[in-house]
Simulated assay, not measured.
Amino acid sequence: MGAEIIMGGGADQPIERRIHLSYGRFTPNERRLADLVLEFPGDLAAYSATELAELAGVSKATVSRFFRRLGFPTFEEARRVSRDAREAGSPVYLASSGADRSEGDENDIALFLRDETDAIARTLGRIDPESIGRIARAIVDARNVVVLGYRNSHHLAAYMRGLLAQMRRNVELVPNGGDTPGDRLAGLNGDDLVIVVGMRRRVAPLEKAMTALHGLGVPVVLITDPTARGLPALARETVVCETETRVLFDSYASAMAVIRLIAVSVVRLKGEVGRRHLESVEMLHEALGELES
């Protein structure tokens, strides 16, 4: 869903969470419709069922069936929920597909700069500050923190683990060396926290690991991109980062910014305890001569 935060639980689940919970059971046409709605859920209130069907390239009957499967008696009820969320100021629903992304006469570097800054702005502009606060609090309170990531996401996970390890103990990176996730995730429970970094293209073991953690009652925070489907339903909190630009290769600038934002929030929560831990790390660096002066 764009760059949004997807919350867990509750009787009045938002549209995007209902979609993620049911995504694996959708027909191909329903998935096309789901992808359209997830990109800009705030635009839903602006369209009739006929217009939405045309945009998604599906029938009007598919639209009606899709929203009934999500638990809405009618399409109008889904539009009302979208409109109410937009009026309440939800950053997920305030974002619109009408944003200006024209290229103009920019040269390659100017285009690259605009794409990178635009991805960061769209990501941070749609994040709920209260959710970042909850994530930071969970990191501070957890007995153990495990940061999990595969492929390109592993580098982002390592960056996050490095930041968090400077301000608290018991922070692990998974997978690490010759370990498998099972080696490190065994024994975790509701007192721990797993932060999953899952950018496209994700590997199959990621969903399996998240499913296992969900079954064990281990809290999970998911940092991902707009293409994630189903995974947010397995997480307590989800932060979605924009990665797609108009040039080759995904951009991880917004993901790095989000990780740093979370780390800064943790430092503020830890207060003096966090600063003392950071100082002890720096003293060891100096004593061991590990870093350039």
Rank of each mutant, 00 (worst) to 15 (best):
M1K: 04
M7L: 14
G10S: 08
R17G: 01
S22L: 10
S22E: 13
G24M: 07
F26V: 13
P28G: 11
E30V: 04
R31I: 09
F40K: 03
P41G: 00
A49L: 06
T50H: 08
L52W: 05
A53K: 05
E54R: 09
E54I: 01
L55E: 07
A56K: 05
S59A: 15
K60R: 15
K60C: 11
A61T: 15
V63L: 04
V63H: 06
F67I: 06
F67M: 09
R68D: 07
R79D: 01
R83V: 00
D84V: 00
A85N: 03
R86W: 04
G89V: 15
S90Y: 09
Y93G: 00
L94K: 13
A95P: 08
G98E: 01
A99Q: 15
D100P: 08
R101Q: 12
F112P: 02
A119D: 02
G125S: 08
G125N: 07
I127C: 01
D128P: 00
E130N: 14
S131V: 12
I132M: 11
R134G: 03
R143L: 07
R143T: 08
R143P: 02
V146E: 12
V147C: 08
L148S: 15
Y150H: 13
R151V: 08
H154D: 00
Y159R: 00
Y159L: 04
A165V: 14
M167E: 07
N170V: 01
E172Y: 13
V174Y: 05
V174H: 08
G178A: 12
D179G: 03
P181N: 14
R184G: 02
G187Q: 02
L188G: 03
N189A: 13
V197E: 03
G198Q: 12
M199H: 10
R201V: 13
K208A: 15
M210F: 02
M210Y: 01
T211F: 05
G215I: 14
P219R: 11
T224P: 08
D225N: 11
P226Q: 05
T227M: 11
T227L: 14
R229S: 14
A235F: 02
V239L: 15
V240S: 04
T243L: 07
R246K: 14
A255F: 07
A257S: 07
V258A: 10
R260L: 07
I262G: 00
V264K: 14
S265P: 03
K270E: 03
G271L: 07
G271H: 05
G274C: 02
R275A: 13
H277V: 01
H277T: 13
S280L: 09
H285L: 02
H285M: 02
L288P: 01
G289I: 01
E292S: 13
